[in-house]
Write a protein that binds this DNA or RNA. Structure first.
Lengths: 107, 107
DNA sequence: CAGAGTATGCCAGTCACCGGCATATACCGA
DNA sequence: TCGGTATATGCCGGTGACTGGCATACTCTG
């Protein structure tokens, strides 16, 4: 699972959101670094739906346009928790090694 | 930057290593989850060399076979530090949201 | 002598992501 | 009223990292 997908799940973690709102939320979470293209966004949503990590929360018509709201499933929450733990561990190990490797640090 | 590449840099963070040793180290760091294929490994090393994130530490002949040892460059260390910080932040946010979303948690 | 371990490297294929485009409505300023 | 921006969903071609498999070659063990 890559960063955009992870951010997408994260953006869904606190409350259900629809596609466009997710794109803005992902940008906000990442501090403006990750601007999800719609291709990535809807492609990823399709994939996550098929994987059962998210599901359609509700479909409503706003201003005569469809708005499809997504939410995390239980497996989705679990997957996100696992991923978060994993990358946190990786980050810790990287930081630790960077610190340890300062061979001449003592001098 | 994806996980395999990040793990590769992490495996180089404490001391110079050659290709095969890196593959084993990555597997160790990831707790056996990530088994780097040689295609990924040498492809990534090539890429990282071109990006200037790693460099050839030394080339020695052991048992009449070439052993090329790689090490992180200063930009490589910086990039790893930045990446580690970034994914740590992402992990924190995901964990926080998963916790917050327990709507009935307060009771 | 066969097989496993060490070690480097190439190649075809897959799949997530990128960048752009199309479509459609609402709202705001010129 | 016309154009631009924001909202909102969705498709399509291309890129590039990663996968899985293969080739090569030497050493050590059974």
């Amino acid at each position: 699972m890559q960063e955009p997908t992870l951010l997408l799940l994260t953006a869904l973690a606190d409350e259900p959101r629809h596609g466009y709102a997710l794109a803005r939320e992902v940008e906000a979470i990442s501090g403006g670094r990750v601007k999800m293209r719609t291709g990535t966004l809807y492609g990823a949503l399709e994939r996550l739906l098929q994987q059962g990590l998210i599901e359609v929360h509700k479909e409503e018509v706003v201003d005569s346009r469809l708005r499809r709201t997504y939410t995390l499933t239980a497996p989705g929450r679990a997957a996100l928790a696992t991923e978060a733990e994993r990358i946190a561990a990786t980050a810790r190990e990287a930081t630790r090694r960077l610190g340890v490797s300062g061979k001449a640090a003592t001098t």
